[in-house]
Design a protein around this nucleic acid. Sequence first.
DNA 1: TACATTGTTCCGTC
DNA 2: CGACGGAACAATGT
Length: 278
Amino acid sequence: MPELPEVEAWRATMERWLVGRSIAAVHLVDSAVIRPKLSTRPSDGWDQAQSWASSLVGSSVKGTARVGKRMGLQLGEGWVLVHLGMTGRFVRDPEPPRFARIGLDVGDHVVWFADQRRFGCLVPLQGRDALCVGLGPDALDAALDGEGLAAALPGRRAVKTALLDQARIAGLGNIHAAEALWRAGIAPATPCATLDALGWRSLAAAIREQLAEAVEAIPPGEDFVYVTEGGDNPFAVYGREGEPCPRCAEAITRVVQGGRSTFWCPGCQRPGGVAVQG
DNA sequence: TACATTGTTCCGTC
DNA sequence: CGACGGAACAATGT
């Protein structure tokens, strides 16, 4: 379940694997991975997919970008948006891996986009600017200080739900939204409109710290395996229903908001937040 | 089998 | 009509 940190890691990986190389061949394993728009579905189909893929041959990869959870690749004069969905990842191997959707042969190796659940996709774009359409500011945007965050998240909605709204702030998913709220000591059901300046400042700082730590926790230059599968759970509250809060020892609770699980600590997360500790 | 996961969209309600 | 909540949808492993 890639959020901003994982997408950023993949972007950096694509910088190393692809940028500066010329595309010798494209292997379109599943043409439904190419979509005319982000909102179209695999079953909708798109008759231009194959011709777009073919048109890439001979062009070179010139750069990468990331906005929120979207990655961009500059291929020739155009750009392509890559959305990882739930299970999208990249594999560098001569042979297509399981669930391979498309492969870019850049001469010295082949880079495959593999996606078991097929929620991920590639969307050809006119230019780099199109990467940002429909998105609020990136979650690591310097403008998102306390005041900027308050302006981005107006209304009576629960702050957890609002943090997941990519049109308001781009890059947070279910895990890092919950972790940031725990860091800030803010209860997830708190209506945005009831947060004061101190609450917004702590939340803005918590988001920045949460994402920065997650980015740094991913070893540069390596593939990574999502940590909740098998290994130790590195999160304070996510996936820890019933376990003691690492800050106050109260039992972590799970509630459903907007159809999604929210993990939080009723002991030290309060409406409006608590004073930042330490 | 039912359920869990995500981002997006659609629809009903206030 | 805007805001918001809830449900549906995509795919598939458990």
